[in-house]
Amino acid sequence: MDTPRLAEAARHVRDELGFNFLSDVSAADYLGWGEVGVSGYIATAGGRDLNNPSTRGLQRLPRPKPRRFSLSYHLLALRRDAARVRLQVWVDEGEPVPTVVPVWPTADWHEREAWDLFGIRFDGHPNLSRILLDDDWDGHPLRKDYPIGGEPVRFSGEE
């Protein structure tokens, strides 16, 4: 789905379809997706077939993604036989996304976390500030171009 329709779609899903529970807002960064192919025995998402491996020795690249970041809204309706729904929005670097806080207030902190760790801006969010990292932290750590950091481990035996 593209971003301008998100606010309207969110309202529709909540009011008409009855998904009143926002379980999670997850962002994912797909920079570098598909550059490393995998070969050998892998299965399709539908299941594994031991007698029918899928690549047959050739390199297989995963399907390309439309934009760099995906934002997945996992929804649930509190009904007995309710299924789960995932609304997925694709954004590029710097592109803002309308906030769903007026629809599901719980998205407040989830969107702050997406901003903090990925740098995805939310238009209309009442309090878009860093939540998990220091307020003056530079960069957005969960992006793929941010290094894992840490220190090299020094062993006591080596010189």
Partner: peptide
């Protein structure tokens, strides 16, 4: 020593 978390946010 930072344990299993050798990353950008944990003090080693």
């Amino acid at each position: 020593s930072g344990g299993m978390f050798n990353n950008y946010t944990t003090l080693q």
